[in-house]
Design a protein around this nucleic acid. Structure first.
Length: 420
DNA sequence: TCTGGGGTCCTAGGACCC
DNA sequence: TCTGGGGTCCTAGGACCC
């Protein structure tokens, strides 16, 4: 068996650069929602020690001194670039699994003698760069875990090996693993790293040599599988193959803190409506809803509460979901509290129409037509053209800040770039 | 003043049932 | 002197990923 994974280099920054050449060769940071912290950095920004997740207010001086360019996150653009990236990949492989917004697993077309084809991998990279304008790196290996490690090594050795690393060869693994810190391995976070240290496990080689039973003891069955995969033994159920989404969440920091019940209710309603819309797009209904609201953990005594409930029958109707979320706000609101974030989670998703009917709640026969009309209008005239009243109308101070957003170059005809 | 958002998986423990 | 055992379901919390 052979796996390949391709990831896009500094994806958000690279996407911004495709349409804005002034960003090339200069330090660039893409900001999180609400323009709060750095979530993507160009190589130049990394060289200036801008850290992943670092808050913007802590690096104001560096931004000014080095002329670091900032962009708010533009998810419409990134989603579209991801689509293009996978379309090109599909021309080179018949088996693709989209793993995240900037990486996909795939199988190379020709795998002679079970060896990964480094030449094919280079060809894939060149095609993506030419057609989409995005730089990538590829990792190859006999298991997913090994391909992920190979991909990480490809980043670290890009100047030497040109962005492709193949870990099918046991001798090469032995050589590279003794140099590669265990904390860099896919699936080893801070907590596991700390628990492995007393056992003398510092490198990937140490981890691969750990007896599986010990691995299970230190971690869970997940760590045991990880060790097996590092040794080239595929554990097919090791990774998530998201056939169907199990849950979805819409959670947002507020642009300005919220202190009144009315505002909190409206903010929650907007998130609830969006969450309901997301599952409708996928033809799903939810049987469980959770709403939460809290203050800043950097302030003393932040308010914090959550409520959960079953939805019976399962629903994706914004009238139902927004209504429940609003009632939850009323029961959890703490007067005097300064709220900075709230959100709605919809869980236990299932295909609409597949579930069991509720004996005591007859479905509204007009709902499908109403929802289809709502979604149609919003698709045609823009999000929230028509909404549930509890969402309120127009912009609010608590809406997410995105002050440095680039245009929707590829998804809105009014914002298409013009060549002169 | 200002610190992201959205996922998955696993385990432990309590409630409840037979 | 001695308290059953084995299921399931649900929830909370931890850990990890991008």
């Amino acid at each position: 068996m052979s796996w390949a994974i391709v990831d896009i280099t500094n994806f958000y920054v690279s996407s911004e650069r495709v349409f804005d050449p002034s960003l090339r060769g200069v330090p660039v940071i893409v900001l999180s929602n609400n323009d709060g912290c750095a979530i993507a950095r160009s190589e130049e920004a990394k060289a200036l020690h801008v850290k992943m997740g670092e808050p913007v207010f802590k690096m104001r001086d560096r931004i000014a001194r080095h002329g670091i360019q900032l962009r708010s996150s533009n998810y419409e653009l990134y989603a579209d670039m991801n689509k293009r990236f996978n379309a090109v990949l599909a021309e080179h492989s018949d088996t693709i699994e989209i793993y995240s917004i900037d990486e996909s697993f795939f199988r190379l077309p020709v795998l002679a003698n079970g060896l990964g084809d480094v030449t094919s991998a280079h060809r894939v990279r060149a095609a993506i760069l030419r057609s989409v304008g995005l730089p990538t790196r590829v990792g190859l290996g006999p298991t997913r875990t090994l391909s992920k490690v190979a991909n990480a090594l490809a980043k670290a050795t890009e100047k030497v090996w040109g962005g492709v690393v193949d870990l099918h060869d046991q001798a090469l693994r032995t050589r590279l693993f003794s140099q590669w810190p265990v904390g860099e391995v896919w699936g080893i976070g801070k907590a596991l790293e700390a628990r492995l240290l007393p056992l003398g496990v510092r490198t990937t080689a140490d981890l691969a040599a750990l007896p599986p039973a010990i691995a299970r003891d230190v971690g869970t069955v997940v760590l045991e599988r990880l060790v097996r995969e590092l040794n080239g033994i595929e554990c097919s159920d090791f990774t998530v193959e998201p056939e169907a989404m199990q849950g979805t969440a819409v959670t947002r920091q507020f642009g300005e803190p919220v202190t009144s019940l009315d505002e909190l209710r409206e903010a929650m309603a907007r998130r609830a409506a969006r969450a309901a819309e997301k599952i409708r797009e996928k033809g799903l209904v939810a049987s469980r809803i959770i709403a939460f609201a809290h203050g800043s953990r950097y302030r003393p005594n932040p308010p914090s509460a959550s409520r959960s409930a079953r939805l019976s029958p399962p629903s994706h109707d914004p009238r139902v979901i927004v209504g429940m979320a609003s009632r939850m706000v009323e029961s959890m609101f703490q007067p005097g509290g300064v709220y900075t974030k709230c959100g709605v989670l919809l869980e236990d998703l299932q295909p609409a129409g597949a579930g069991q009917a509720d004996l005591f709640a007859a479905p509204d026969p007009r709902a499908p037509a109403l929802l289809a009309a709502m979604d149609g209008l919003n698709a045609r005239f823009g999000r929230n053209t028509i909404a549930v009243a509890a969402q309120g109308y127009g912009p609010r101070s608590f809406d997410t800040k995105r002050s440095q957003k680039s245009p929707s170059w590829t998804t809105d005809i009014r914002q298409i770039p013009i060549a002169t």
